[in-house]
Design a binder for these strands. Structure first.
Length: 496
RNA sequence: GGCCCCAUCGUCUAACGGUUAGGACACAGGAUUUUCAUUCCUGUAAUCGGGGUUCGAUUCCCCGUGGGGCUGCCA
């Protein structure tokens, strides 16, 4: 199966685009076919320099590389394949689209239109006032060949429009929606070739996807109403149309089409926020698709074998990132510890330079891997290993743990004594915990009354890894004296 | 306005015409030998409305209603 993704280089890659790209990629992989990337830059005004590379890099981040067409080589975009060029402006330069427009002109399926934008605007206004659907009124169809020639010779600006047979019924079987039908008279005479000579999306899509031998076009539902135009063009040109899958739209919370007003829509934004590609891809795959099992976590490989278009939903899906965050947590926990450590190292080192060469970082990383959702949380979570924390009396006290202003000094003394009673070599979290539990057995203290102040004394934080785990790591790194010192500092705080 | 598409918990979704309408996220409660988190358990919560067809409709048909998309010399 040959599939394609055909973005316009207008800036960033949209999450909706990533989703259709993903489906196309999955289908191609699954069928051992090819995933093509074509650049649709027929709108001169909207094209942005560097956007192509940017889109390609983002796609690569997500784990999708094109097999053919425009792809990344180092930092720049190159083209590979036998059906190129794969950039529409380059195809345009070869006169490709004009050639087929001429063919349609000759066969009577298209005509020159000399109407000015002003006239078209007025026409639409009148139609709207009469509560009619705004459609081209075919004024230029009436022009005789001689009149057309004369206007062309006079250098009048023109476009080429397709001539839609009004009496036809255009029916089609969509891969997701099933049968879809349109009445010819409701379909507008679409502009095929603009006055600057460039094709519109409609002509370019039909010509390119035919020439590039695309078997299946997966695109957003917003294209469904243009489908009859495309089908007709394939017919007029004598070509077999591809299969189509019109994927339901991604929606804002208010169920309108996903917009940047209400959501982060650029994949880059999710990269910057620290989302893992595994999480975003997993999330996108599950939006509007389900495997028919209760499996929620999918690697790319698993998606390749599990995905199928017939389990894609017909209704739009609200882009609610709560589940994305959950998936992010799941995926960050799956990262092998060493890799996790190397991912957080530069972030921690940025704030605490010692981390750059920290031999203890793996042990510290292990303490936080299950408690964070984003790498960016790591520096804060580990801060107390690198700087002495600011411990406050307020934090040492906890009503939930029954640590009061009154019993706190005594608690800290007990903690100190327990710690002192254990030889440095035996400072493992298990051994430490056992010691505290023994004390608890005596009846005077609850475990929380001892471990809470210890944890706060060591970390200065409302939440952190467990007290004994921190004590173990800290003792190994800085010696038991350093740990005791922090307890003593806290104790001093209570007496001042 | 016209054309097209769609409709199950708040959200993502499952259910050959026969299920106590299932799962996940979120939320609430609890357990997990300290906080936060993780993990586990429990709970709250849905078939848009009306007609058909059928012994029986979430499921099939029709009509409403609601929502969305398109309606550019943008894609």
């Amino acid at each position: 199966m040959r599939t394609r993704f055909a973005p316009s280089p207008t800036g960033y890659l949209h999450v909706g685009g990533l989703r259709t790209a993903l489906m196309s990629w999955l289908v191609a992989r699954q069928s051992k076919g090819a995933f093509l990337l074509r650049i649709e830059d027929t709108d001169q005004e909207r094209s942005v320099a560097g956007a192509t590379e940017n889109i390609l890099k983002t796609l690569a981040w997500a784990g999708m590389q094109p097999d053919e067409g425009v792809m990344l080589q180092g930092d720049s975009a190159v083209q590979k394949g036998t059906k190129g060029p794969y950039i529409q402006s380059e195809r345009q330069a070869q006169g490709l689209y004009g050639k087929y427009a001429d063919e349609l002109l000759k066969s009577g399926h298209a005509y020159h239109c000399f109407c000015t934008p002003q006239r078209l605007e007025e026409m639409r206004k009148k139609q709207e006032a009469r509560k009619q659907a705004p459609m081209y009124d075919r004024q230029c169809v009436k022009l005789s060949p001689e009149e057309v020639d004369a206007k062309l010779k006079a250098g009048e600006r023109y476009v080429i429009r397709m001539k839609v047979p009004h009496e036809r019924i255009i029916a089609f079987e969509d891969e997701i929606r099933g049968k879809v039908q349109f009445q010819g008279h409701t379909v507008d005479d679409q502009v095929l070739l603009k006055s600057d000579g460039f094709p519109t999306y409609h002509l370019a899509h039909v010509v390119d996807d035919h020439l590039m031998e695309i078997d299946l076009v997966i695109r957003g539902e917003e294209w469904l109403s243009s489908l009859p135009k495309h089908l007709l063009l394939f017919e007029f040109l004598g070509w077999k149309p591809p299969r189509y899958a019109h994927v339901p739209l991604l929606l804002n919370k208010d169920r309108t089409k996903l917009s940047k007003r209400q959501n982060s829509v650029a994949v880059e934004e999710y990269m910057q926020k620290g989302y893992l590609p595994e999480a975003l891809v997993n999330f996108l795959a599950l939006l509007g698709w389900n495997p028919g099992t209760t499996q929620e976590l999918f690697t790319m490989e698993e998606l390749v074998s599990a995905f199928s278009l017939d389990r894609v939903q017909k209704a739009g899906a609200v882009f609610d990132t709560e589940k994305l965050d959950w998936l992010q947590g799941q995926w960050i926990r799956k990262i092998p510890l060493k890799e996790f450590m190397e991912r957080i190292r530069p972030l921690v080192a940025e704030k605490y330079p010692d981390a750059a060469t920290d031999k203890m970082l793996e042990k510290k990383a292990a303490l936080i891997q299950e408690r964070i959702t984003f790498f960016a949380e790591a520096p804060d979570m580990l801060s107390f290993f690198y700087i002495k924390p600011n411990v406050s009396l307020d934090l040492l006290i906890s009503s939930k743990q029954k640590v009061t202003k009154e019993n706190l000094p005594r608690a800290l003394e007990v903690i100190e004594n327990i710690l002192k009673s254990i030889p440095g070599k035996e400072w493992t979290s298990d051994r430490l915990l056992a010691a505290f539990q023994e004390k608890v057995k005596e009846g005077e203290w609850k475990l929380g009354q001892l471990l809470w102040p210890l944890r706060v004394a060591l970390t200065g934080r409302a939440y952190s890894p467990g007290a004994v785990e921190v004590a173990e790591a800290m003792a190994e790194e800085q010696g038991t004296e350093a740990v005791l010192q922090r307890v003593q500092t806290a104790l001093a705080l209570t007496t001042s």
